[in-house]
């Protein structure tokens, strides 16, 4: 088989291109869930804000996991997560 070369920049860009969209979309998703909750409970704008932050945090954690946690695990001999 071919030699194992370090992934090229195109590969790296492709691997991490989805992170931005993921953060934005998860923030939007949780904010939207927040509005639904707010409408039901009449607590506007409490859950919108909370949802947005939660979504952002979750999206960020997803990115953090792939950028920081998995590479270090990989270095310790475990295969990387998708």
């Amino acid at each position: 088989m071919r030699k194992e070369s370090p992934p090229s920049s195109v590969v790296q860009v492709g691997r991490h291109a989805g992170h931005g969209i993921t953060i934005a979309a998860s923030a939007a998703l949780f904010a939207w869930l927040g509005t639904l909750l707010d409408e039901r409970l009449g607590t506007r704008p409490l859950f919108v804000v909370l949802g947005a932050f939660l979504g952002f945090g979750a999206g960020f954690y997803s990115m953090y996991r792939r950028l920081v946690l998995d590479p270090s695990k990989e270095r310790d001999g475990e295969p990387p997560a998708e």
Binding site: G18, H19, T22, A25, S26, L29, A58, G59, Y61, S62
Partner: peptide
């Protein structure tokens, strides 16, 4: 919390492909 985010992450890749 993370399941929807992971699903979004899964969809973000082809979405980025299409948009790019």
């Amino acid at each position: 919390i993370m399941t929807p985010v992971e699903l979004i992450g899964k969809l973000a890749k082809p979405f980025a492909l299409a948009v790019r």
